[in-house]
Amino acid sequence: MRGLRLRLWQVGLLLLFLAWWEWASRTGRIDPFFFSKPSDIGQRIWRWFSTGEVYPHLYVTTLEMLLAFLFGTLLGVALGLWLALAPSAAAVLDPYIKALNAIPRVVLAPIFTLWFGLGVLSKVALGITLVFFVAFFNTYQGVKEVSPVVLQNARLLGAGQGHLLRHVYLPAAASWIFSSLRTSIGFAVIGAVVGEYLGSAAGLGYLIAQAEGVFDTTGVFAGMVVLMVFVLVLDALVGQVERRLVHWRPKAEGAQG
């Protein structure tokens, strides 16, 4: 009952906002040229999907972000594990990692376009540079925070390095890694869309850039909405996987994380 009531409030707030937007736009209180209106945006999205013209773009963006997400996470988790377990290597590489992470990623987009062309590859590369650090820092932190007593206990019980990795380090880091995954998805989308926006021939970022080029605010907003729903769906999927894999945690802690 409580949950239902909460949902009603949430949906109500959205409807109220949309209704106000529609009304304000129709009555000229805000300029429809700059702000469009929900009914137009909805129609545009409907047309995109019914004619199928959005699918190639959606496909390209999905591909880019999934690849960036996958490889960025794999690289980040692998390097995070390695450096957390090899403190001397971590000490050597520390300034380099900090320096690389200090680069604002957007400035990398032109250089990646030069290196990897206008296609999918340059966007994936940009996404990876964003996703990698999130996964890396979270994995590193997660492994570092393994309770020393639990670790010593496992070693005394006869665990080898492989056992420790599988039964101690990775599960301990799992909740950190999962919280990083949810941030990573957003970053992967940013990588893909910013890359497309700055130079490409397909993708949602390209679609938005095209619409913007002809002052088509409806198109810009429609692209934003599609992207938003897209990220929310992915985030929910990761949440499902997380609940299945990290079900050992006490509920209170799970609610916080």
């Binding site: 007593v149 639990v150 010593q152 206990n153 039964h167 799992a174 050992w248 945690r249």
Partner: peptide
């Protein structure tokens, strides 16, 4: 051990 040393995720 004095503290809990069993694995909380098992």
């Amino acid at each position: 051990f004095q503290q809990d040393a069993i694995l909380p995720w098992k």
